[in-house]
Write a protein that binds this DNA or RNA. Structure first.
Length: 417
RNA sequence: GGAGGGGUGCCUGAGUGGUUAAAAGGGAUGGGCUGUAAACCCAUUGGCUAUGCCUACGUUGGUUCGAAUCCAACCCCCUCCA
């Protein structure tokens, strides 16, 4: 691989962000010569993003750190249309209010990773609803639609896949790539954006935007995609039984976020360190060399770094400390999730399964009963086998709390009030 | 509009009158082994005020002692034809 001229491209390639690029050499040249503006589009269907989007977010961070300008594009307009690619159940339409709320939540996350502001190098956040909802059908078809040949659209992977499998593809969906291509054109006009970044699944859509910019405005635009990040086991990243790994602390506590990274599979540690932390490559190389039990040190570093980026250093230190106390000392860390229970209830004793449910460790009483029966429940670190076990004030420790555990990793505290 | 096929639990998918809270697999959770890893083995996997009760096989009605299974209407999806 040749040496890259721009710090931006070199960083992305070295750290494993690159999957495909429309014209790597030309883009490298351009980024070496001038400040460029690049965008990534995000759905705003939820009030937070999850780790699935983190590769994209990190890329924008690198973009800004290497002296360029990131645009965060919120899919307010496309959300209104409803992206049909997400399978059956027609997605319910979000109100403008919801979309605004979601955008605010997502902006909160980005604030940690990139700087928004009024300056030239500052990131900006835009909403494609601003232009998409104003489109007039006939003019749009004449100005933009004529540049898309059906023959070519049919050859795109996303479309071909559907047709080959004889799966339905609605006209709405078919238009999605045109709208996204148009976003790129619009951003190049409004903000002089020359590059679209995205996941590998976005390749087709990105290429369309590049094409459109060239045909309509004669501009040289670029596309760059990241590989799909999967776990070494092949599973898609970021989904657990508890739900998605959200980046917003209201949706997932920094402690749980830290735990997510701490539990990374051995085989993924090096790759994740490069993608999700900003440690120097030499140091990552050293951490990667660790074998067997020692690799746990690398996982802690990964968790610390990733949590620091997302929630700040204080939260990361607190999470690491809680984990250390909980797992290495077996003592009670006081910032575990805590629920309050009326002392009067505990006086007469409460069923353990009910407390497990109220503490959020189980979804239902039945699930909690099964957990107890299966030997996974503990009170103050003592295993409990009888599903009719009761908990009372007698179980309150010297610290004034009762520690409940579901398995080895999930804990909660009960505090009588 | 016509002809045919189909809608089952978190997902895929079996089941064509009773022993079906519903096979099997996946996923998930718990246990074991370990390193808070992977792989592997075992268990669990609708809810509840729990030796019983309630809800569940697209919706609503019907037949029957008894229905996911039979009938009717309706809704939705797919294939082919127009």
């Amino acid at each position: 691989m040749t040496a890259f001229k721009s710090e931006f491209i070199r960083t992305l390639v070295e750290r494993g962000f690159m999957h495909q690029c429309t014209d790597l050499d030309a883009l490298d040249e351009l980024a070496a010569q001038q400040k460029i503006t690049a965008y990534i589009g995000y759905d705003c269907t939820a009030p937070s993003l999850h780790v699935g989007s983190l590769v994209q977010i990190m890329m924008q961070r690198h973009l800004q750190k290497t002296g360029h300008r990131p645009i965060v594009l919120m899919g307010g307009g496309t959300t209104k249309v409803g992206d049909p690619s997400g399978k059956d159940a027609a997605r319910q339409l979000l109100s403008d209010q919801d979309i605004d709320n979601n955008m605010a939540g997502i902006r909160e996350i980005f604030r940690r990773f990139v700087d928004f502001g009024e300056g030239l190098g500052d990131a900006i956040m835009v909403n494609n609803d601003d232009w998409l909802s104003e489109l007039a059908y006939i003019p749009f078809l004449r100005d933009v639609g004529r540049h898309f040949s059906i023959n070519r659209m049919l050859s795109f992977e996303s479309v071909k896949l559907r047709l080959d499998r004889e799966q339905p593809l609605s006209f709405l969906e078919f238009n999605y790539m045109i709208l996204q291509a148009y976003d790129f054109l619009e951003l190049s006009r409004r903000h002089d954006c020359v590059l679209q970044l995205g996941g590998s699944d976005q390749w087709g859509n990105i290429v369309n935007g590049v094409e459109l910019g060239r045909r309509v405005d004669g501009k040289a635009l670029f596309g760059f995609t990241t590989p799909l990040i999967t776990l070494a086991s092949g599973a898609k990243m970021g989904k657990t039984a508890q739900g998605a790994i959200w980046l917003n602390k209201d949706m997932l506590s920094p402690y749980d976020y830290w735990q997510f990274w701490r539990n990374t599979e051995d085989a993924d540690v090096g790759r994740f360190l490069r993608l999700f932390t900003e440690l120097p490559l030499e140091e990552i190389g050293r951490l990667e060399e660790l074998q067997d039990a020692e690799i746990n040190e690398a996982k802690k570093v990964l968790a610390d770094q990733a949590t620091t980026l997302c929630h700040g250093a204080d939260a990361a230190i607190a999470a690491a400390e809680t984990a250390r106390r909980t797992f290495e000392e077996g003592s009670v860390a006081t910032d575990l999730p805590t629920i309050e229970v009326a002392a009067a209830d505990l006086e007469t004793s409460v069923m353990l399964f009910e407390l497990l449910r109220r503490a959020g460790l189980c979804q239902s009483n039945g699930e909690a009963r099964r957990l107890i029966k299966g030997g996974g429940a503990r009170v103050n670190d003592a295993a409990v086998g009888d599903e009719m076990t009761k908990v009372s004030l007698a179980d309150v420790t010297a610290d004034g709390i009762i520690k409940l555990s579901a398995g080895k990793k999930r804990h909660a505290l009960v505090r009588p009030v």
